[in-house]
């Protein structure tokens, strides 16, 4: 069922992580992703993983919930792993026909997979602990300085709010249309590539029309509720930096230092 997709979902809570300003969390998540690419050895990954699990522990989001989200992207991770295993040159460990596994390949594949897993969990921690509205408010505020050079920060944030809101709705809509056309004898499974692509038309057109209908009705509903752009808008929950955010900032700088140091740690062992 489409309702199971956790990616981009919010897990309600009142933990220290939930209470952080969304801007802190956005910067933190971005920094973490960049730092994952700074890491180049086992110790670095161990530290990065430990830090992430510490955050998860503090946030009190159940691990089950987080890993359920991972299953959706499992294929991508597996694919990256296999590509890396076979395509990197180096000390040969095993060879058969055109397939060669090298020590370096195995290492690279392992690192790449771990990096991906941490990256996905790290970024889903942002959405799991931040309400969509806070997330987009944070983004709007972070982008505000750029509005002077023409970046429409409020509109971008609103678009994100609506996108997050309507992903489940459109997925359900797609599900319904697919079933309705299947009931009329559409066959999605057999035939060559062109036939299969053609069988998508009866789904895409109704989906398109539905999306326009939804957009039109939503626009009307928003107008009826006095929406007229970002000017003069207030917020129910103004986002504010607190003491916790200062501490988080200190921890983030500390983490960056440790990660950079970890690059040299490998040489010591």
């Amino acid at each position: 069922m489409v309702r199971d997709i956790t990616l981009g979902q919010y897990y309600p809570g009142k933990s220290a992580v939930h209470r952080l300003d969304s801007r802190t969390k956005i910067i933190g998540a971005l920094a973490y992703i960049v730092e994952l690419f700074v890491v180049n050895n086992f110790w670095g990954f161990l530290i990065a993983a430990a830090a992430l699990f510490a955050v998860i522990a503090v946030s009190k989001v159940p691990l089950k919930f987080i890993f359920k989200g991972l299953t959706a992207v499992f294929l991508i991770i597996a694919f990256t792993f296999i590509i890396n295993v076979f395509l990197v040159d180096g000390r040969v460990l095993w060879h058969w026909w055109i397939f060669t596994i090298t020590y370096e390949g195995l290492q690279r594949a392992f690192f790449m997979a771990v990096r991906l897993v941490l990256l996905i969990i790290g970024s889903s921690m942002l959405t799991l602990t931040t309400k969509p509205i806070e997330l987009t408010d944070g983004l709007e505020k972070l982008l505000k300085p750029f509005s002077k050079i023409g970046v429409p920060s409020h509109e971008i944030a609103l678009m994100m709010t609506i996108a997050l809101r309507f992903i489940p709705t459109l997925m359900e809509e797609t599900d319904k249309i697919i079933k309705a056309q299947e009931a009329r004898g559409t066959d999605f499974e057999s035939g060559n590539l062109i036939q299969r692509a053609k069988s998508l038309i009866p789904i895409l057109i109704p989906l398109f029309i539905s999306s326009f209908r939804i957009a039109q009705e939503l626009a009307l509903a928003m107008e009826a509720r006095c929406y007229h752009g970002g000017e003069g808008r207030t917020r129910m929950n103004e986002i504010h930096f607190h003491r916790g955010d200062a501490w988080a900032g200190v921890l983030m700088v500390l983490f960056l230092a440790v990660i950079i140091a970890s690059r040299y740690l490998g040489a010591l062992f």
Binding site: R165, C226, H228, R235
Partner: peptide, 25 residues
């Protein structure tokens, strides 16, 4: 009912109207 709810979370959606007319937090 689906096409008139703007925000993903219930209370944020209810707040949408008052926010638009500049009601204090």
């Amino acid at each position: 009912p689906d096409n008139q709810i703007v925000s993903s979370i219930v209370e944020d959606d209810v707040a949408f109207g008052p926010e638009n007319i500049g009601v204090p937090s």
